[in-house]
Design a protein around this nucleic acid. Structure first.
Length: 492
RNA sequence: GGUACUAUGGCCGAGUGGCUAGGCAGAGGUCUGCAAAACCUCCUACAGCGGUUCGAAUCCGCUUGGUACCUCCA
């Protein structure tokens, strides 16, 4: 509303002006996790990407309804010989109810998101709670003639659909190519064409998660849950649909086909996809032994990690790259991010302590509004967080200069400066002031006392004592810095 | 093989047809009892080969590399 936002739309492969259907309201749907394992980096990136977008749209004055689902049914194992539901398999291995498994990992996911300071979505619907809505869509698609029933399962007729619509327009696929490149596999006789996809699957006898339907005892297939839940909470036609680039085909492509077949309307105007993450240049996968979950990053307990990385370091690192580029994790890169993040925090904490003067230096007076403008410009250009962060770093020399009395600033300008910094660093990027959070008044008092004793020792040339104080504090992760005006400290 | 994304200095990672990314690391300096921090200065890249252009890392083509997806599943 109050910002001209450009957003990259996968459908058009260009940046487009963001124009909601019904301003100031914005509907955004993002594909959430399948809860059958510990949350890992692959969960963090989309969550943080769309958290950034959510935060900025709200900042820009929109009333955003953000829906992010929990997938807790019908996820078949990728490389298993017999198609076995991931959640069911886990349940069998751990001797638990399937829903117990789903709940357990949903809780883990929520905890990881909380630590990463990812705001909870407005609505977080579960697939298992929307079976009826999904069956309704199956009925609609059957009625419209875009699906067929085969042996108790219902399949989407891609060929029929493509006679009047363009299946493949999101991912750039051509139907003939799909056909030519699809391998013939066993057990696909139910489908008329290999590229048809299931809307409803008949459950095999050992399949625990099943629901009654007009077609069979079974479970909803494929991409149906997102179509059902987005339509229920955002309407049949809403603004933004997001997710990882890996979901573009077939998941999102099929969502479009389903929605158009059922409702005769495109599900959304803007498709937004975040790019993938690699670890040391390789994709992350259990079979590659480089699978690191978020708890392991936070604790440092993984053979590939040389140290623990705080949630804010991970968040900062992810935001330092643009969401549409691939991002490679390595210890070196994370350590650089950790230092950079701390430097920015230090600058902010110094800014809070600056005492205003009567006047602001002319150059600084120009910088402050320019800084705000550049921050907005960065975010308006397809949520360019790396540019925003670079802009924040531009402030450090001003802040350090103020701290050393090289410049002066008046109260109005100082407030504006602080406000802009705070807004972009904490409200929009969603970083937290980890250092300040640990600092209590008691600690301040204790540190003042300790530093005065150390100053006394230094005055007496008792450097053994002063160094001992500094070294022992260092072991507690408290760093002393001696400056002209006395010692300062900060806690890591 | 197909589709998509991508290839930037020691590392991470932005970006535009001609002009500074930013961070980390490194070098020198200021400061300092020492150290750290801070500040100043330096390190100037754009996979390869062609083409368009007065001019391209930025546009086009080809080549090569990386990643994801292309079967059941969300």
């Amino acid at each position: 509303m109050n910002q001209p936002i450009q957003i990259y739309n996968t459908l058009s492969r260009t940046k487009e002006k963001f124009q909601p259907i019904n301003p100031p309201f914005v509907g955004m749907y993002v594909c959430g996790p399948t809860v059958y394992g510990e949350p890992h980096l692959g969960h963090a990136r989309p969550a943080i990407t769309f958290d950034l977008i959510f935060r900025y749209l709200k900042y820009a004055g929109y009333k955003v309804r953000y829906v992010r689902n929990i997938t807790d049914v019908g996820h078949l194992e990728n490389d298993a010989d017999e198609g076995e539901d991931k959640i069911e398999k886990k349940a069998r291995l751990e001797k638990l109810e399937p829903m117990e498994v789903a709940q357990f990992y949903t809780n883990s996911y929520h905890e990881a998101m909380r630590l990463l300071n990812v705001l909870p979505p407005s609505i977080e619907p579960k697939a298992s709670g929307h079976i009826i809505e999904q069956m309704d869509i199956v009925k609609k698609i059957l009625d419209a003639g875009f699906a067929y029933i085969s042996n108790g399962s219902v399949y989407f007729n891609v060929k029929k659909y493509s006679e009047t619509h363009q299946y493949g327009k999101l991912s750039g696929r051509v139907l003939d190519d799909l056909l030519a490149n699809t391998r013939e596999l066993d057990g696909q006789d139910e489908k008329q064409n290999p590229y048809d996809f299931a809307l409803w699957k008949k459950a095999s006898p050992e399949h625990i998660m099943r629901w009654k339907s007009p077609w069979s005892d079974g479970f909803p297939g494929w991409h149906l849950e997102c179509s059902a839940m987005s339509a229920k909470y955002l309407g049949e036609h809403f603004d933004i649909h997001g997710g990882g680039m890996d979901l573009m085909f077939p998941h999102h492509e099929s969502e479009i086909a389903q929605s158009v077949a059922a409702n005769r309307v495109e599900p959304c105007n803007y498709w937004v996809h975040n790019n993938m993450i690699t670890i040391n240049g390789q994709k992350m996968g259990k079979s590659l032994n480089n699978f690191i979950n978020l708890a392991e990053f936070f604790s440092g307990k993984h053979p590939l990690l040389t140290q623990a990385y705080s949630p804010m370091t991970i968040r900062f690192f992810i935001l330092q790259a643009h969401y549409r580029g691939t991002l490679d994790f390595s210890n070196e890169a994370l350590q650089a991010a950790e230092k950079a993040y701390k430097r920015l925090l230090t600058a902010y904490n110094i800014l809070l302590k600056i005492v205003p003067a009567q006047q602001t230096d002319a150059e600084l007076a120009q910088f402050i509004p320019a800084f705000a403008a550049k921050c907005h410009e960065a975010m308006n250009d397809d949520f360019n967080s790396p540019i925003l962060i670079a802009n924040l770093f531009e402030t450090t020399r001003w802040i350090n200069g103020l701290n050393e009395n090289k410049f002066s600033i008046n109260k109005t300008d100082l407030d504006a400066f602080t406000h802009t910094f705070h807004t972009f660093m904490f409200d929009i990027l969603g970083l937290t002031n980890e250092t300040a959070a640990d600092t209590t008044l008691t600690t301040e008092g204790l540190m003042d006392l300790i530093l005065s004793i150390r100053q006394q020792a230094k005055t007496n040339k008792d450097f053994a004592t002063s160094d001992k104080i500094r070294d022992e504090l260092k072991k507690l992760n408290i760093t002393i810095k001696d400056t002209k005006d006395g010692a300062t400290w900060n806690m890591e």
